[in-house]
Amino acid sequence: MTTLVNEKNVQFNEEGFMTDFSQWDKEVAEMIAAKEGIPVLTPKHWEVINWLQEQHKSKNPLTIRKVGGSGITDIKEFYALFPNGPLKKAAKISGIPKPVSCI
């Protein structure tokens, strides 16, 4: 599935996760966020997004518990920043694959 963002073709899988991180930029993130019901990405959102991308680069599996211990945000705030399925939603916006953890 391809979506046009600022004359750039961005590839997504059938669940809506980006398949090529090199296509990710802030505009793409904002477009995905709007689609996920987050109209404005605040500085806190960006901090979490950057942290998630770093974790993904370091091949650290992502869990809610890890987000809680990240020092960037706590679990309650994480749920408030990305309502209704925070880890999946935040991963989508960050352009990284769907986290496979159950916790």
């Binding site: 599996p61 869990t63 809610i64 518990r65 890890k66 809680g68 679990i75 309650k76 749920y79 916790i103």
Partner: peptide, 17 residues
């Protein structure tokens, strides 16, 4: 497996709503 202890898990559940 990085599973929290029971008291920590309860905190996570509460924070998660």
């Amino acid at each position: 497996l990085d599973l929290p202890t029971v008291p920590e898990f309860l905190e996570i559940l509460e924070a998660s709503g």
